[in-house]
Every structure is written in C-alpha cells, then in structure tokens.
Simulated assay, not measured.
Amino acid sequence: LLAHHRLVAPFDAQVVTRHAEAGTVVKAGDAIFTLIDPATVWIQAYVDEERAGQLAPGQPGTIRLRSQPSAEFHGTIIRIGLESDRVNEERRVWLTCADCPAEMFLGEQAEVRILTGTRASALMVPEVAITGFDGHRGTVWTVQDGRLARIGLTFGARDDRGRVEVAGGLPEGAAIVTSPPRGAAEGRRAHLSEAP
C-alpha cells in the first residue's frame, strides 16, 4: 500500500513549489509539487509587432538579467508565438540560454536583444528625424544644392539606438538633416555642419 502511494518524478527535476506538506490530506488530481527541469529553462521576451517581422528561430540574442545587470548572457530563439497580444500589440518569443547562471530564478525580469541581421555599411537616420513614419516610409528634411527640401524615403532595418536604415529614395548628392532648425521651410538656404 505504501509503494502504491509513492510519488515518483517522471524526470530528473527540481522542486519549485511545494503545494502540500507531509500529513496534509490531498484529493486525486491535487498538485503536490511544481517541478522543473533546470536544463530546459527558457527566457520569454515580448517584442513589439512593428519590430517582430524579421524574427526567426535560430537567431542569436543577448540577455541581461535584472539581478545581474552588468553581465551579458547569450541565447538563441527557440520558438516564436503564433498569436500576438491584441492589447499590447506584442509577440512572444522564447530563447534558450547557452551560458546563463546555473541558478536561475523563475519569473525574473530580463532584457533581451535579438540580432536579426547585419550590414557591411548602411546610411542610418535617427527615427526622431522622420515625420509620418509608418515603419516603412516617411519624410525627412534634406539639403540639396544648398537649399532645404522635404522628400519621402523608404526605410529598412532598425538598430537598438533608435536609428533606421535608409533603403531608397534619397537623390544623388542630397544630405539628410538629422536636427531640422526652427522655421525650416522648403527652398530656404542651408549649409551642412557636422554634429559635435
């Protein structure tokens, strides 16, 4: 009878929560322990839908745990949620962690950065310099032949510093104004100066 009531975990597990103490009366189906396999701990991240289009399983990511903000760990996307959160407009992404600490705390907040691609070179513009930006197209101020002009451009990838890649539409010899002056108007004379 005693052997019939012995609890055996189906895998080598670690007890996370004990729902009942010795001597407690439990019914069939009641949870007694919550178990995890420490080797299968995943990091769950929420990614804005606007930035989630280039995500794919296998992409590398860096992970910073709130309890260790100065340490950087490395992970890989293992799964991407099939359903977005309709309220927050976010997609759930799960990463495995290759070198995370042996002792992980479930539910701890983490910051995740996922590398979706690299460029040998790219013309990058601060997103704040783009008006009417819809994630693909927008308008910027440029200097062409010594005069201000507004033109529409198409944009590509974003980086983690708030910059967007110019993908097309920039005329030959035109320069993008990253900080338009007050009173900027079409055709007004302008000259370029490098940011300090």
Rank of each mutant, 00 (worst) to 15 (best):
R161T: 09
D99F: 07
L55R: 04
G81Q: 08
G117Y: 09
F33C: 04
L2M: 07
I63L: 11
R137D: 01
L106M: 01
A167N: 04
H136Y: 07
L106K: 00
G156H: 01
V15F: 07
L170Y: 11
W141A: 02
V166L: 12
R161S: 10
I36R: 10
V47E: 02
R188C: 03
T154L: 04
M124G: 05
P69A: 03
S84D: 11
S121I: 01
E172Q: 14
E172A: 14
V41Q: 11
G187A: 10
R147K: 15
L55I: 07
E186P: 08
W42R: 15
L2V: 07
W94M: 12
S67V: 11
R6Y: 14
V8F: 02
T40H: 10
D99Y: 07
V26I: 15
R86C: 00
G169V: 12
G138T: 01
R91T: 14
D85S: 13
A129C: 03
A52Q: 00
P171D: 14
E108M: 05
T154H: 02
V8I: 13
G58V: 05
T62E: 14
A185W: 04
A190Q: 02
D85W: 11
N88Q: 14
R163E: 15
E194D: 10
G187V: 08
L148G: 01
A195W: 04
L123N: 08
P38K: 10
P60M: 01
